[in-house]
């Protein structure tokens, strides 16, 4: 293993923060979802990396589960996007602010 674990962690962090930033900045549902995917990928990276660090297969296993769940979530999300588009005609997240207070 040539890459030190700390580097990997830093990369993962950066990735996570990038995802977070895109969530915070973007106003489109799809783009926000992309941000989430990036965050999840950061988690996956850490899992796989530490799996190698600890020499255990658990992390990789988890990463597989994660991918499966990501896929399910995305499927649902896209269905919802279509539904939203039909009902509201927009995908701007701040257009949905009727319930408040």
């Amino acid at each position: 293993m040539n890459v030190p674990f700390s580097h990997l962690l830093i990369i993962a962090f950066l990735l996570f923060l990038m995802g977070l930033a895109s969530i915070l900045v973007r106003r489109n549902v799809i783009r926000v979802l992309i941000g989430v995917e990036i965050m999840l990928n950061a988690a996956g990276l850490v899992l796989v990396g530490s799996s190698a660090l600890w020499n255990k297969v658990d992390g990789q296993l988890f990463a597989v589960f994660l991918m499966a769940i990501e896929a399910a979530e995305v499927a649902l999300a896209l269905a919802l996007v279509i539904y939203l588009r039909r009902r509201k005609g927009t995908l701007n997240i701040n257009a949905f602010n009727e319930m408040r207070g």
Binding site: G19, M39, A43, L47
Partner: peptide, 11 residues
């Protein structure tokens, strides 16, 4: 998003 945090935390 919460799932993202949770996953990262678990990782």
């Amino acid at each position: 998003v919460a799932t993202g945090f949770l996953a990262f935390g678990i990782a």
